[in-house]
């Protein structure tokens, strides 16, 4: 809930800045009109960059895998002692 408020206020601030720029006409209109598209393009680039970075350093935890396998073996042993069929291996 808090996060969306932050994002929304950022969006409102950016659009207010843009409308102010549009009204003030410091720089030519045609260039001011490009800014929202620039914003969208940079958002897309950011998303793509985040996906790329996440793929590059994909977190793997081998120790956790070993622990999990140990837990599975323990549980299977436990159930076998209680007489529950948990399949082969």
């Amino acid at each position: 809930m808090k996060h969306i408020v932050k994002i929304l206020s950022l969006l409102v601030a950016i659009s207010a800045f843009w409308i102010g720029l549009l009204q003030a006409a410091i720089i030519p209109r045609s260039h001011t009109w490009l800014l929202p598209i620039y914003f969208v393009v940079s958002l897309g680039c950011y998303g793509l960059l985040m996906v790329g970075v996440g793929l590059m350093q994909f977190p793997t935890c081998p120790q956790e895998a070993v622990l999990l396998q140990k837990d599975i073996a323990e549980a299977k042993d436990f159930f076998k002692h209680k007489g529950v069929d948990v399949g082969s291996n």
């Binding site: 960059l49 790329g52 996440g54």
Partner: peptide, 8 residues
């Protein structure tokens, strides 16, 4: 991942 980052 490297390709995606460099493209973006």
């Amino acid at each position: 991942g490297l390709l995606l980052s460099s493209i973006s």
